[in-house]
Design a protein around this nucleic acid. Structure first.
Lengths: 321, 321
DNA sequence: TTGTACGCGTTATCAA
DNA sequence: TTGATAACGCGTACAA
């Protein structure tokens, strides 16, 4: 193992001088600098990063905790990875499968200083537990509003959902069924939006039982099959996300149902699937949220951070409504 | 910062004893062990992992280099991440966007011992350059056969493609168009398969110009539009992957073309999209390849490694053929 | 402009 | 069974 002392010895200087050369510090005689650089090249030397981390007290590694790869988490992870790399940070990925123990592994690595910071897309442990780890390094979350201890790049989905509902109304749909997911704060916000929406337009309670806990393509397919058998049918379905909408759309088409002729479908997120299937949807700027998450972490680490994006939902009109 | 010396002082023992307790070494008096454990708990102490890495000479971090998140790379990355975590390793993800410089960052981290090993899903730099890094740690690749220096979990796609072609033939299709991707060894292998296939069944050269360099959904959509305008049409299209097949299928349906009535579509990979759209495809076991990749790395690191899976293609018959 | 020497926090050898 | 101490490799006061 060739180390800094070896280089110093061969170059006929001290380790301090070698270190100065490596880190581009001033006050090094040009000749000696060249000599050192030559030895470094000749011995194929590179500083050991564990030693540097130990000395500097940071690793420049940020952990990303996610339950799994989903069509919604992937764009976030990708964007986060890219911006982190641009700032000389690296990303360690933790797929927890929503298991408390696996999530704890990531938190413990923050504690043991293998990680400088953490971003939690989802969480398995209770908030107080996660909060208790903020004393070891900054933690940012996605999609959840917490408190001062844990900042968030959360967006209130009231506004986004309302955008979609207003669009459905403008297109003439009046018998709207809501398909919600189950987790966290998003659903209450969306329900509130629908509540205000139906009051605003004097829509009497349509009588469709809203669905809950639907998040996957197969969920959407099941909803399609029950729609076909329903006697009193909604004329539009607002989905919890694009996956549900995609499953719904494709299964309806398989059954020969015309979309949007017989029923309109509204997605949420604007992921690849929505683009492929030409689904009308609400764009959820997860890439910008990821960049904000990183900026917040950088700031809390005391480094120069880029400015935050303002986050906005956007209606993407396509052919499913 | 509370460190091992602090613990030793408060427990009235030496750092050696504390270290023994932490690492479950034998020969430590039970009373002292309890005392040490109590102090550790009280001070919320945890060993600094940079120091441990420095001392041990390894970080238990494995790098994963991928051009981007694609529908084919994501399952691999996910499976690799999970198996690595099961073995107490962690994964650092590098999205290179096929940029040599960004890829070099990962290789350099192997050199500087921040990474114990590397798996390359794609590569931007020339092979000799990548090979030159194997002296710093094991490197495994996906989808490319290289040499002893760089083992691979590559699968010869001749067999898989032939599986698909035989299926098309059995279903009665005779006028097959091939849509190839461009990169690497896969295309030549598939072309060889088609060559043998057409000889076996005395298919005269169909006269369809095979397409090359098609890999995305939008590529598939473009192919659909040109199929519609073509006068001499193939009755089946074998695609480079499921994304192309998906774009092709959806755009054809939009144009009112019946699939498989007017034309059959064969995908490759068996990803989520293929399941959603009910595409006939060839299953490519990327999760098993990922687990093999990790096993090979583990073995090269001199650790006990799980047995390798045997890798097999499988035809998934669905409604597009 | 340069070098000495110490500290970062841990593990492990060796002698007791 | 225990402790003193030497690494691991780097960065940087401080003194020169």
């Amino acid at each position: 193992m060739t180390n800094i002392r070896e280089i110093a010895r061969l170059a006929g200087v001290s380790t301090a001088t070698v270190s100065r050369v490596i880190n581009d510090h001033p006050y090094v005689n040009e000749e000696k600098r060249q000599k050192v650089l030559e030895i470094i090249r000749r011995l194929d030397y590179v500083p050991n990063s564990s030693a540097t981390s130990l000395k500097k007290g940071m690793t420049r590694i940020v952990g990303v905790v996610s339950g799994a790869y989903t069509t919604s988490s992937t764009p976030f992870i990708q964007a986060f990875n890219i911006i982190a790399q641009q700032h000389g940070f690296h990303v360690m990925l933790f797929l927890t499968d929503n298991d408390c123990g696996k999530e704890l592994v990531a938190l413990e690595m923050l504690r043991s200083k293998q990680l400088d910071a953490l971003v939690c897309l989802h969480r398995a442990n209770e908030w107080p537990i996660i909060e208790s780890y903020t004393k070891y390094g900054p933690i940012v979350t996605w999609q959840r509003l917490v408190n001062d201890l844990i900042p968030s790049v959360f967006m209130d989905q009231y506004q986004g959902y309302m955008l979609g509902l207003e669009h459905l109304h403008a297109r003439g749909y009046r018998r709207i069924m809501n398909v919600y997911s189950s987790k966290g704060l998003n659903t209450p916000q969306r329900m509130r939006a629908y509540d205000d929406f139906s009051k605003k337009y004097w829509l009497d309670d349509s009588g469709f039982a809203d669905l809950h806990g639907k998040v996957s393509i197969t969920d959407g397919e099941r909803i399609a099959r029950s729609w076909v058998e329903q006697t009193d049918k909604p004329d539009a379905i607002a989905c919890s996300n694009d996956d549900v909408a995609a499953g719904l759309l494709t299964e309806l088409k398989r059954a020969g149902v015309s979309v949007p002729g017989e029923v309109a479908i509204l997605g949420f997120d604007n992921n690849n699937l929505a683009r492929l299937l030409d689904l009308t949807t609400v764009h959820y700027p997860s890439d910008k949220q990821a960049e904000n998450a990183f900026a917040i972490l950088l700031d809390r680490l005391g480094q120069e951070a880029p400015a935050l994006h303002t986050l906005e939902f956007e209606l993407i009109e396509r052919s499913s409504t």
